[in-house]
Design a protein around this nucleic acid. Structure first.
Length: 903
RNA sequence: GGGCGAUUAGCUCAGUUGGUCUAGAGCGUCUGGUUUACACCCAGAAGGUCACAGGUUCGACCCCUGUAUCGCCCACCA
């Protein structure tokens, strides 16, 4: 009969939802409801990197949630005032394009025209509400311990207030301006796109060379060439030395005779490339635009905002550029101006990262943030936004993990242009600018609230979605009720919001390295500017999840794409979490596949069964696990117990230090192998013979706390069975275990326990070789060098241990039937030392080891004698060196002793 | 073109400022094992000149230089 009330196998599906609701019910995700809130001094806060509302949870989110939840739960267990704010992003372009696509699939060709602004926005809002519901339930599935009572959304009224406050302040400071600039225009979505949101895709297209007066120019885009009336060459190019800058000539071109001007420019021209000359299209090319600005050239629009040719194209006017291309080539060919066609020329085509529409650069009036104007006060100096962004990372105010991304970050900032923040879509924060009147009498109003009067008209554009996301660390912490009171200044809002005062700046920003620029950099920009503080102290960047083959996971490929929502019921959220943490290092991509997750499911099950075993033990001993106090229980501890106690102490120290330094993978691995290899396979096996139930239960409880950040569900479930009657509440709010002074650790016990382990291992080997002749069996025992050493040098111990394990050692051959019973019954084991050890080889080996040790010690000694090293290196480093030396000396002594005995 | 990284067992990856690392884990492979914690298990084995070539050092997977292959980011291709 089963002596345990714990089911035989862990069924994640059955317990996870139940436990999550219990946590929510307890209110412990909310720092305000922490039972000992007043005592909590230190605070820890983190914001959820707002998943956008367009989709469902994917593995990237799952990894992010797992990492952040570990950080959050660890802080909470440590007794910090812990807040993790969840929320979602309205994801302007992404969301609008999804909704429009959905309508188009229903047969509504142009939803904008059909519904108009107000109605379409309403439809998008409804869609967003649905998505948010889905996201919420999925985040819960992962076990994320975020405070749902503080959930935020970038379009909330309180967050919109922040957006307006920032816009107004930046406008007043002259950091936001409106101007005609060349922007990335997406004719499909009818909006501008930020530089970062443009992606380049390689395409093979024909490449044409045309005669342009005395010059030959090459292009893959002849349809833009109608307005070209400048030809540019390098000032040092000897081939064109006879032409002077500004010289004009007449030539035949697409729509007839034109007058062209020669421009000499060293910056834009690469003499080596092609013919070394080109014509320019300032309206539709950024480099050409800059050239035109430098030389004061005329700019002319050729393509309209729908991607169709303008009247300048003559008879081709109104035609879409894609259709017009062959026509233009045809016209020029007829005129005899086509020199050659290169069929598959490889070049990059610019696409919108959202929606994949082709980008057509256009000159448009847009809103920009000036990143170079030195008007912001920071550290008592006037600096530009760009300089502040550099400063906070350079000075170490913000630390990026892994460090190498700091270089990437600086590189990006060096190449940063003014940020175009206006978008021509309807979904998003509308720009808080109103106009009245026409022409010269036009008045502009910029404000947090709309101006009084009816005759005002608001700017039709919306803000880039990252504008509001960039405020996330603090806009979510401002008290929403206060934001309704417009008599309060922005400073008042900050000062009167308790959450902001307590939790900002946040401790860590955890996100994928792919949005370092999009988001992390912009949070730094906005927060330093607006709040005069950094948004977070540490940036932890995780890698991208890849398939077994190393490809990006994409939803369109269900073969390789793993859906967390299918995995969780099958393997459990705990297993999924472990599989995405252990063995991964920050900033590096990692591959995930089902077997990996299965492996961690096995670990969870192992822990589960070990707990069952402990419970059975309790039953055997007639104790209720809840009344067991832990520790040694006052009884004299066996060697094994002392060893476990001591190792556990080091484990706690390692786990604590590791988590403090965000080394999640390493800590996870340590817990995994400690629990499985050391606790289950040795300590539990040993306790089959002799048990200190206090130690057993106490150790298990410690594991549950240590492992809780990684596997919250299974540990919480097991806690129910093992919690001490006097401890209050759920595992989630227990105190983190403390470890004792390392000097007090029982190193002897640890070492001796290692010997037990080895002896048992040896006994098991005999067993494994049953059926083989007795003499050979014994050789197997001592085959491994470690055993040779241990058995020889620790014979005394072994005899003691044999007694402890109810083994007896004498010269009789092996009589036992199997090894496990060795701990329970009287068994005799024969371990002959004589004749198996090759003393000659031993001496040789020890001699080599001695030599090595001596040179090692010499090195360290010289290091310690070096005054420069001692005075410059931190005290810790010097101490470790000293320890090393001491250990080496100990070891050397032992070797010498052994060499003596071998003689 | 500029930058950043990777290269460690059949596969996927760890390896914490150079030394107790004769380099580890998981999966896979092979051998043996089922006595009530667990076959989602236990014991054991095989498998690596840490990409290559130099250098620094008493000592290099780790630091430096170069080479090769792969990947990512940025810029650009008139």
């Amino acid at each position: 009969m089963d002596k345990t009330n714990i089911p035989k196998a862990y069924d994640a599906k059955q317990v996870e939802d139940k436990i999550y609701s219990a946590w929510e019910k307890s209110g412990l995700f909310n720092p305000d409801k922490a039972p000992d809130r007043d005592k909590r001094k230190e605070s820890f806060s983190i914001v959820l990197p707002l998943p956008n509302v367009t989709g469902t949870l994917h593995l990237g989110h799952a990894a992010m949630l797992a990492i952040e939840d570990i950080m959050t739960r660890y802080a909470r267990l440590q007794g910090k005032d812990t807040l993790w704010v969840p929320g979602t992003d309205h994801a302007a372009i992404a969301t609008e394009s999804v909704v429009i696509k959905n309508f188009q699939a229903e047969g509504i060709e142009d939803p904008r025209a059909k519904f108009g602004r107000e109605e379409l926005v309403k439809h998008i809002s409804d869609f967003v509400e649905d998505s948010k519901k889905t996201m919420r339930s999925q985040i819960r599935k992962m076990g994320a311990s975020c405070d749902w009572s503080r959930e935020k959304y970038t379009m909330d009224l309180s967050l919109s207030r922040c957006v307006h406050e920032v816009f107004k302040k930046m406008y007043d400071d002259g950091l936001i301006y409106r101007g005609h600039r060349i922007v990335n225009w997406d004719p499909k979505m009818q909006t501008t796109v930020a530089d970062d949101e443009v992606e380049y895709v390689e395409r093979k297209e024909p490449y044409y060379t045309f005669q342009y007066g005395p010059f030959q120019i090459s292009t893959s885009r002849p349809e833009t060439k109608f307005g070209d009336k400048y030809v540019v060459v390098h000032p040092d190019d000897k081939r064109y030395a006879k032409f002077k800058n500004g010289e004009t000539f007449e030539c035949e071109w697409i729509s007839g005779k034109i007058t062209a001007t020669v421009i000499k420019d060293a910056e834009i021209i690469d003499m080596e490339q092609g013919t070394g000359c080109m014509t320019v299209t300032p309206w539709h090319d950024k480099a050409d635009f800059d050239l035109a600005e430098r030389h004061g050239l005329e700019k002319e629009q050729v393509i309209d905002y729908d991607g169709k040719l303008l009247p300048i194209a003559g008879k081709l006017a109104g035609m879409h550029i894609e259709k017009a291309r062959p026509k233009v080539v045809e016209i020029l060919e007829e005129k005899g101006l086509l020199v050659k066609t290169e069929e598959s020329y490889e070049h990059n085509v610019a696409l919108n990262y959202r929606g994949k529409g082709m980008i057509e650069p256009q000159i448009m009036e847009q809103w920009f943030i000036d990143v170079n104007k030195q008007v912001v006060s920071w550290k008592k100096k006037k600096m530009s936004l760009k300089e502040i962004m550099q400063d906070v990372v350079k000075s170490g105010d913000i630390k990026i993990i892994p460090e190498r991304f700091e270089k990437t970050y600086f590189h990006w900032i060096d190449n940063l242009w003014d940020w175009c923040i206006s978008r021509q879509i309807w979904w998003g924060h509308r720009i808080p600018v109103w106009y009245r009147g026409e022409g010269k009498d036009r008045v502009t109003y910029v404000g947090v609230t709309p101006p009084d009067g009816d005759e005002w008209e608001q700017d039709p554009d919306t803000l880039d979605t990252w504008f509001s996301s960039a405020l996330w660390t603090w806009s979510t912490l401002i008290d929403p009720e206060l934001t309704e009171d417009h008599s309060l200044s922005f400073q008042d809002l900050l000062e009167k919001s308790p959450d902001f005062q307590k939790f900002h700046s946040t401790n860590v920003m955890e996100t994928g390295y792919d949005i370092l620029f999009f988001w992390v950099a912009r949070m730094i920009l906005m927060t330093t500017y607006m709040v005069s503080d950094v948004p977070f102290d540490t940036v932890y960047l995780h890698g991208m999840v890849r398939t077994r083959e190393g490809k990006k996971m994409s939803k369109s490929d269900p073969e390789t794409c793993i859906d967390p929502l299918e995995i969780i019921p099958k393997y459990g959220a705990d297993a999924l979490r472990l599989s995405m943490i252990v063995g991964q290092s920050p900033g590096n991509d990692f591959r995930l596949y089902e077997e990996k997750i299965g492996g961690y499911r096995n670990f969870v099950n192992k822990l589960w069964n070990a707990s069952r075993f402990v419970q059975m033990k309790c039953e055997d001993e007639g104790v209720d696990p809840h009344t067991v106090a832990g520790g040694g229980g006052g009884a004299e501890l066996s060697l094994a117990d002392r060893a476990m106690q001591s190792s556990l102490d080091s484990l706690i120290a390692d786990v604590t230090k590791g988590l403090d330094e965000y080394r999640l993978s390493e800590v996870g691995e340590k817990l995994y192998s400690f629990i499985w290899d050391y606790f289950c396979d040795w300590y539990l096996e040993l306790s089959k013979g002799e048990t200190n139930i206090n130690m057993l239960v106490g150790t298990l409880r410690t594991f549950l706390v240590l492992l809780h950040p990684y596997c919250p569900f299974v540990t919480e479930e097991l806690w129910e069975h093992f919690k001490f009657e006097k401890s209050e509440g759920m595992l989630i709010s227990q105190p983190w275990p403390v470890h004792s002074d390392p000097a007090r650790q029982d190193k002897d016990a640890e070492r001796d326990f290692q010997i037990i382990i080895d002896v048992i291992s040896a006994i098991r080997s005999i067993r494994a070789d049953q059926g083989v002749e007795p003499g050979l069996k014994l050789k197997v025992i001592i085959h491994t060098k470690k055993h040779l050493e241990l058995l020889e040098s620790q014979q005394e111990h072994i005899e003691r241990l044999a007694k402890l394990s109810e083994l007896s050692i004498d010269s009789d051959p092996v009589k036992h039937e199997n090894a496990a019973s060795a701990f329970l019954k009287d068994i005799e084991v024969h371990i002959p030392l004589e004749g198996v050890i090759d003393f000659e080889k031993e001496r040789e080996k020890l001699g080599k080891e001695k030599e090595k040790l001596e040179s090692f010690m010499k090195g360290i000694e010289s290091k310690l004698n070096n005054k420069k090293f001692v005075s410059n290196a931190p005290a810790e480093v010097v101490d470790t060196e000293k320890d090393k030396l001491k250990n080496a000396q100990d070891k050397l002594n032992k070797i010498e002793e052994r060499l003596k005995t071998l003689k």
